[in-house]
Design a protein around this nucleic acid. Sequence first.
RNA 1: GGCGGCAUGGCCAAGUGGUAAGGCAGGAGCCUGCAAAGCUCUUAUUCCCCAGUUCGAAUCUGGGUGCCGCCUCCA
Length: 483
Amino acid sequence: MKIYNTLCRSKKDFIPLKQGHVSIYVCGVTVYDECHLGHARAYVVFDILRRYLKYKGYKVRYVQNFTDVDDKIIGKAQHLFDEDKDIFHASKDISECFIARYFEDMDALGILRADEYPKATEHIPEMIEMIQVLIDKGYAYVVDDREVFFAVNASESYGKLSGKKLEDLQAGQRVNVDTRKKNPLDFVLWKPSKSNEPKWASPWGEGRPGWHIECSAMAVKHLGETFDIHGGGADLVFPHHENEIAQAESCTDKCFARYWMHNGFLRSGEEKMSKSLGNTLTLKKLYEDYDPEVLRFFLLTSHYRSPMHLNNDSFDKVKEQCHRGYMMLKSAALFLTQKTEAITTDPMTKIKDKWLNGMDDDMNTSIAVSCLFEIVLQANLLMKSGHVADDKRGELQGWLEIFHEIASVLYVFQKPYIIIGEDTKVSDDFEKKLQDLLLQRKALRGQKDWKNADKVRDDLLSCQKDIELEDTSFGSFVVYKKN
RNA sequence: GGCGGCAUGGCCAAGUGGUAAGGCAGGAGCCUGCAAAGCUCUUAUUCCCCAGUUCGAAUCUGGGUGCCGCCUCCA
C-alpha cells in the first residue's frame, strides 16, 4: 500500500515498523463544543484507514487523544463557575460533557472506538518529564522562573514537516509576539495559570501545559518513541505537528512518527469551513435531516486529501446514491431467499482488483465507491427481467459477496432491512399490520379496484419513514429499515 | 512577504504518457393498471488559457489566468 506522507510530500510504500502491526496516533478534538462535519471527515478518514489495514491483515493499535485543558474550555467553565465548584471541576464537567457528545456523534457515523483515548489532564507528569528533558538538553528555556519555551533555533530540522524555513515565517504578522522569546516562533511548553484557571504543580511553579506537548508525550507513552502513522487535519501541519515533532525528536533523538497523513478540508462555498468563520455544520444538526450513514458516504466520495465542496444539494445527491445501493440489496434479498453458493467470474475479479489497487494507492475511496456501483449495475442486470435464472443465482451471490466485502471496510450499506412478503412469517404486530395491508391491496388489485388499492398503498407507505413497496412478478413486498 | 494546493460534462468526482471511472440531475425508449425500482440509449472529439517535449498529454516542461489553504485557535 502506498500512503502520501506529508513529510516527503509524496506517496511512499507503507512498511510498518513491526511486521504485521501498525500503530496510529490521530489528533483528537479539543472538547469545548459540538463536533461538526469537518471533525467527521477526519475521523471517518482514519476509521477507514484502520478498517482497511485490518482487512489487509494487520493488527492495528489506534490511539486518539482528547485535549481537555485549553483556553476555550476554561472560558466556558468560568461562566459556569459557582461557589460549590472550583474551576478544576468545572473544566472537567465541560470536557466530560463534550467527550460524551463526541462519542454520540462518532458512534452514529460507525467510527470504531480507539484502543486508547488519552486525556491531556491525565498525562501531566509525562509532559513535565518531557519538558525537563528538553530543558536539560538545551532545547527549552525557562523565563521568569515559571514559564518554559521551546527554542526552535535549537532544533536543526524545525520546519521539515510543513516545508517552512524559519527565516520565511513571519511570526507575529497577525498576533503580538511575546518579547521574552528568543525567537518569535518559540512556543510555550509550560505556562503559569491565572488564579481562576486549573493548575498543576511543576518544577516551574503551578501552571498548565502548552497545547503541543500533550500529543508528543501521550503518543510516546502509548505507542512508543517511534510509531507508524500520525494523522490529523491539514490545518494541524503547522504549527501543531511541526511542534510535536520538534519536541518529541529533540527529547528522544529518535524518529517520532514515520508517516504523516493529513486530510483535506471541507469548504462551504469558496471558503474553508471552520469554527472561527462560524460556517460549520454540526453533526447533531445534520442528523436531523440525514442518516449519519449518508454523511459518512458523502465523505467517501472524494479523495481524503482533496478539499470537499459543499453545495445546497451535496447531501441529497449522496442520499440518492445510497438509495440506489440499498434498492439493489433489497431486490437481491428478494431473489436469494435460500442459501446459494457464490460463483466467481472474471468481471468480479477485475472489480476486486480495481478496489484493492484503488485503496492501495493512498486510500482512494472514490474508486472504491465506483466499484460498489459497478457491482450494483451487474447485480441489477441479473435481476432485470424480474427473475433470476437458476444458473445465475450463484453469480448474483458472487457479486453480493464482493459488494459486502467492500462495503464492510468502508462501513456503508450496513443497515439491516426487513422484507415482508405475502407469506412471510411475521414476528410482531407492526409486521402483521404491514402484511394485512399487503394482502388487502392484493385482493383489491385482483378485482382491478385500482382506486382503493392505491389508497391501501398510501396507508402502507405512511406506516413508517423510508418504507417502500415493491411489486414483482412473484408478489408484492414491503421493505423497511429496522429502527 | 514566504510556503503549499487546486482548476475535468448542468452538478459532485476518479484518472500522473496511450486515447475521458462512478454518482446526481436532464432527455428519449423499454417494462408497468398506476407508482416505485430497474434496464438501454443519450449529455466532455475533450480535460482553465498559451507555447513546448513526444509517434502519442487531462496527465510531463515553461509561461499566463482564476480560486483556495497555511504562516493565530482550528479536523
